[in-house]
Design a protein around this nucleic acid. Structure first.
Length: 519
RNA sequence: CGGGGUGUAGCGCAGUUGGCAGCGCGCAGCGUUCGGGACGCUGAGGCCGUGAGUUCAAGUCUCACCACCCCGACCA
């Protein structure tokens, strides 16, 4: 590929609204361009990366026996209505209707439809377990897209769906996907950790997110410094210190607190720490209004009342259901081992979710079991955001000059720089080397532009292809070419004659490369 | 959805009390350069986000709207 014809130019300055380092580099290196808020176009360089990320995901799904298929972007309303999601997803989905008024949703996910297919294609327990997956665009009407490709309104997601005959089967499939995810992210150079996550409003039993810890992440993860407990803050809990015995505390007495409507004000007025207070929040839920009582130092809402009670002990002085609805913070005790919890930011690059028979019972998706009864499929779904993964790779693989792609996902293997490209000899030798490398299936971006050395090197550092090969008048004088890995500071000179072979050997030695075929 | 910010050339920005719309980079042509974002000369490129209003005169003042970004809320 000649760089002079590349569609997409590098930018010396990042647009001023690009805030994260990765977003700035993504734009500067011509990976993708914004089209509207939360909508991005992959430029050729970025598209190549996205395809490699996809291919790695594909290979790891195939490895566990998952079968690739594809379901449409536009989905009919009726199945969504059967599961109740047509209504519940209303605020965050794009909808449309055809000319006859039939309603559609831009696919948000595909549980409903894959279940309908499973119902048709799988008749017997003998056909189970089954795992299918596809790569498909998802639409989400995010109120606030942010940070380049990290949070967008349309993105390609790999989503896989497992179908099993029973809970034990589901657990096996879930484990298989969990392992596939670990291999997938490791291959693309992402240090993703698996954390316990909230199963959402859908109920369900078990869910994990694969999180890459980075400052630009929008999720907060509680991590135990002592054991392997790791959970999204949405799900995280803590060990609560035992309470003092109620017997030591006198009966509650009213304390006048006119105008004191916040815990902060109470701390000042009564000279006690926030943790000494209880506060009540009224939450409007679909089942009516619910009162929640929390320790005063958790959350920041303001109960509106001008009298407070002193010496109140939960259980003794009031009743109610004990539920875990408070937040967890840095320094809290690990619920598992009592160790210290740290809070870190992370990007959720993937999630896996065992929902059991939630969808199959609603959609009447059943199979004939060994004992002759009809049973609902026991399922799970498993997502990986492709664009978000690419952006996260950039966020975690760069230096002050530019991107440093892991070889497995780099847009090209070699960036070959002719210096100067106006020199006929340099040009001829460069093109011969490009041809020799391509014969060895090495992917080469050939900088044939009539630019100064500074511009070419700066672009090479910015674009971040793993190997930089320089063919110049200077190196040719010694009958050599220069090889410099992007990730290292030092370069070496290779004899021109076996440069192609040496470089191809390095590329073949890289682990984790996806099988892209000839390109 | 609440709060804040920004809209001027492809990108980064300046534009004074309202008085001919500018700079740097990039782009085109010519020439000199050629190992870390070279230099000279010449040039192209603008619905100043949109619409009303005030004024002799609006990039600049007023109002409304739109878009984008940031914080929060919401959300796989």
């Amino acid at each position: 590929m000649k760089q002079s014809t590349l569609f997409g130019r590098t930018l010396r300055d990042a647009p001023s609204d690009a805030t994260t380092p990765g977003t700035q580099l993504m734009l500067r290196a011509a990976i993708a361009r914004p089209l509207a808020a939360g909508l991005y176009t992959w430029l050729p360089l970025g598209f190549r990366v996205a395809e490699k990320v996809e291919q790695i995901v594909r290979e790891e799904q195939n490895r566990i026996g998952a079968q690739e298929m594809e379901m449409p972007v536009l989905t009919p309303a009726e199945p969504w209505k059967e599961t109740g999601r047509w209504e519940s997803l209303e605020p965050i989905t794009f909808r449309t209707a055809d000319h006859n008024g039939r309603e559609f949703m831009v696919s948000y996910t595909h549980e409903e439809f894959v279940h309908l297919h499973a119902k048709q294609e799988i008749q017997s327990y003998r056909q189970l377990p089954a795992i299918v997956y596809h790569f498909q665009s998802k639409g989400r009407d995010e109120a606030r897209p942010r940070a380049g490709l990290l949070r967008v309104r349309e993105f390609v997601m790999k989503d896989a769906y497992t179908f099993d005959a029973d809970q034990a089967g589901l657990e096996k499939s879930y484990e298989a996907e969990h392992g596939a995810y670990a291999r997938t992210f490791a291959r693309m150079g992402l240090d993703a950790i698996s954390v316990e996550s909230d199963t959402g409003a859908m109920g369900g039993d078990v869910a994990h997110e694969f999180q890459v810890l980075t400052e630009v992440g929008e999720d907060r993860i509680a991590i135990c410094t002592n054991c392997d407990y790791r959970a999204n803050l949405e799900k995280a809990t803590r060990k609560i210190a035992p309470q003092r015995s109620p017997d030591a505390i006198p009966a509650p007495t009213p304390v006048a607190t006119p105008g004191t409507t916040s815990i902060e004000a109470l701390e000042k007025a009564l000279g006690l720490p926030a943790s000494a207070f209880l506060k009540t929040l009224l939450l409007r839920t679909k089942d009516g209004v619910v009162a929640v009582v929390l320790p005063g130092d958790r959350e920041a809402n303001e109960p509106k009342q001008d009298t407070h009670l002193r010496d109140v002990v939960p259980g003794r002085d009031f009743g109610g259901e004990r539920v875990d609805v408070h937040d967890v913070r840095e320094g809290d005790a690990c619920p598992r081992c009592g160790g210290r919890l740290e809070i870190k930011r992370g990007v959720e690059v993937g999630n896996i979710f065992a929902y059991g028979t939630y969808y199959s019972t609603k959609l009447d998706a059943t199979f004939l079991a060994e004992d002759g009864t009809r049973r609902p499929f026991v399922g799970g779904s498993y997502g990986i955001g492709i664009g978000r993964s690419v952006q996260t790779i950039i966020e975690t693989h760069h230096d002050e000059r530019g991107i440093i792609w892991p070889p497995s996902v780099a847009p090209f293997h070699v960036h070959l720089i002719a210096l100067p490209s106006s020199d006929p000899d340099v040009r001829a030798k460069s093109e011969a080397l490009v041809a020799a490398l391509e014969r060895e299936h090495v992917e080469v971006l050939y900088d044939d532009r009539d630019e100064s050395a500074g511009v070419k090197f700066a672009d090479a550092d910015l674009i971040g292809i793993p190997l930089r090969v320089t063919v110049s008048k200077r190196t040719l004088k010694e009958d050599k070419v220069e090889l410099k890995p992007r990730a290292r500071a030092d370069a070496e000179l290779l004899p021109q004659g076996d440069a192609a072979g040496r470089i191809a050997a390095i590329v073949r030695g890289w682990p984790d490369l996806p099988e892209m075929g000839n390109r």
